[in-house]
């Protein structure tokens, strides 16, 4: 009985991860601007990976391998937002026509970043 529950839980999480992954990939290809695409890609890096690895951890049970999967989740949650942040910042500093396709709330922040970068 417990085996069946475990399998179902793991399958549920894996399917959820698959759904998030597909959504994210669709978003990367469908959105038109880099900042929108970052939003879609970050979804995969965080939520998709979390669901997938949770499914794997539940399927494996208490093992060294599942501990490694937990460490993997921590590592990816630490690094991928930083990568997204850097891409976003680079887009902000390099794109000259940024205000044509998005609303920028206050110019001060942008100017500050541009002066720095």
């Amino acid at each position: 009985m417990s085996d069946i529950i475990r399998f179902l839980l793991s399958a549920l999480f894996t399917l959820a991860g698959l759904f998030v992954t597909i959504t994210s990939v669709l978003g990367v290809f469908r959105f038109r601007y880099a900042l929108n695409r970052i939003h879609a890609a970050a979804l995969l890096d965080t939520l998709g990976i979390l669901f997938m690895l949770l499914g794997i951890i539940i399927a494996l049970g208490f093992q060294v391998a599942s501990l490694k999967a937990v460490i993997l989740v921590v590592f990816l949650w630490m690094t991928s937002p930083v990568a997204s942040h850097l891409i976003g910042r680079l887009q902000l500093t390099t794109d000259e026509h940024l205000s044509e396709h998005m609303e920028i709330e206050s110019g001060d922040m942008l100017e500050e970043i541009k002066k720095e970068g």
Partner: peptide
Amino acid sequence: YEPQDDLI
């Protein structure tokens, strides 16, 4: 263009 001294 590269972000210099990015705190994050």
